[in-house]
Nucleic acid binder design. Structure first.
Lengths: 107, 107
DNA sequence: TCACATTACCTAATGCAACTAGGTATATCA
DNA sequence: TGATATACCTAGTTGCATTAGGTAATGTGA
């Protein structure tokens, strides 16, 4: 089980990374996280949707509704320019901390 | 600047790692973090002491006061068995998330 | 000797994010 | 018909960093 804090630290970079590969909708994003982490990370919907709403409110994502006939409507999210920029920053931050931890753990 | 969430995710593993190398006191721990991260991570005292108190309350650390004559008293912290165990777990969690992110970022 | 920086500890109030625990709605399959 | 999977949503709780203070002792430069 991944700690609450680690989840918090990785959600934004993960969502942004997954969406960089193309637009997607919430439910599918949660599934991707499961497969990418080989089942180690399990996102509940109760956390996923607030995250997406927050990122959109901050201008990192934009969304559009798509209704295929006879199917449940889906909200597709994609990266904005600001989102792409943020992804780069988050990635660098992560790597800086990763290096610090690696050093602290010892060679 | 490292995001609040990344700070939160890395504090516990970092404190535990630094103390695995031997007992130390709060102020010195904060300095070590600065040097280990090459100045990337800056811990305020307002966050450091609550963290140490929390970890001791949870039984991951134990502490003792030491007063050298004429010097400000220092509280020295060290790992408990539970703390060492926790460090191993945290490390594994971190590495699992790191792999997931690395994969999501692409080869 | 006076002021300031540094060392060293502490805590109350605020804000933000995951988590808990619900809810709605559609389609498929037994 | 009932269960399962898909697909979306939110209010209330809890935990943590952050902000913004505080105390006390020592060393240093004017």
């Amino acid at each position: 089980m991944i700690s609450r804090e680690l989840i918090a630290a990785s959600t934004e970079p993960l969502v942004l990374s997954l969406l960089q590969r193309g637009e997607n909708y919430g439910y599918a994003i949660a599934e991707k996280v499961r497969t990418f982490s080989k089942g180690e990370m399990e996102w509940t919907e109760g956390m996923l949707y607030p995250v997406l709403h927050r990122l959109e409110r901050r201008g990192l994502l934009k969304s559009r509704w798509e209704a295929v006939n006879g199917e449940r409507k889906r909200r597709y999210y994609s990266l904005t320019a600001k989102g792409r920029e943020s992804l780069g920053k988050r990635r660098q931050e992560w790597l800086a901390v990763h290096e610090t931890l690696t050093e602290a753990w010892g060679a």
